[in-house]
Computed example of a mutant assay.
Amino acid sequence: MMEFNFRVCASPERLRQFLEQGEIAIDAACPFRVQRERTVDEVNSPLLARQWDRLNVSGLFPPPQVWEIGYGFSDPTGRLTSDKLESISKDVTADLQHSRADNFSESAPWILTLATDTDRATRQTIISRYRTLELARSSP
């Protein structure tokens, strides 16, 4: 079991675009059978909110919110490695990294964390966050 988490500060519309592009990137990167689950939670991050204010034209976009987007993965084939997970996370962040030259595109600051099942505590944390992955693992 593995996961990556993004903290993203964005308007609701920009978040929707990011989630759609993330799903496309993950689908393209995982042609093999892998179970996954996504969580989206609103969180507090004054740092990301300040970065958003510095990067965007005031009043041009709806007020942003900070979201934690988590993707949990369970791969019974063993083909999803930590290197592959890192590569997938880079594909997902590509949408956020596009630098736009005009002031009419919202910039969304973000933070990424990766976790693999190197120890029991990490695995238990991932299992508790992504309940359907544990169910998929225990199904015949």
Rank of each mutant, 00 (worst) to 15 (best):
M1S: 06
M2K: 14
F4K: 04
F4Q: 11
F6M: 01
F6C: 11
F6I: 12
C9M: 08
R14Q: 12
L15Q: 07
L15N: 07
R16C: 02
Q17T: 13
F18K: 03
F18Q: 12
F18N: 04
L19F: 07
E20Q: 14
G22W: 01
E23M: 06
E23L: 09
I24D: 15
A25K: 02
I26T: 04
I26D: 05
D27V: 06
D27A: 14
D27P: 02
A29R: 04
C30Q: 10
C30M: 13
C30V: 04
P31Q: 05
F32R: 12
F32D: 15
R33K: 14
R33H: 14
Q35P: 11
E37C: 10
V40L: 00
V40R: 13
N44Y: 14
N44R: 15
S45V: 06
P46N: 04
L47A: 07
L47I: 08
L48W: 02
L48A: 08
R50P: 00
R50E: 15
D53H: 11
F61H: 08
P62I: 08
P62N: 14
P62C: 10
Q65S: 02
V66C: 12
W67V: 07
I69P: 03
I69S: 07
G70N: 06
Y71P: 10
P76W: 00
R79Y: 00
T81L: 01
T81G: 12
S82A: 12
D83L: 05
K84H: 09
S87V: 08
S87Y: 12
S89V: 12
S89Y: 02
K90F: 04
K90Q: 14
V92E: 03
V92C: 11
V92P: 05
D95T: 11
L96H: 09
L96D: 02
H98F: 06
A101M: 11
A101N: 15
D102S: 06
D102L: 05
D102A: 02
F104G: 09
S105L: 08
S107D: 05
A108Q: 07
P109Q: 03
W110Y: 14
L114G: 07
A115M: 09
A115K: 08
A115Y: 01
T116L: 09
T116E: 09
T116S: 13
D117Y: 12
A121N: 11
T122C: 04
T125N: 15
T125Q: 15
I126A: 03
I127Y: 04
S128N: 15
R131D: 06
R131S: 03
R131L: 06
L133M: 10
E134Y: 09
E134T: 10
L135Q: 14
L135N: 14
L135V: 09
A136H: 13
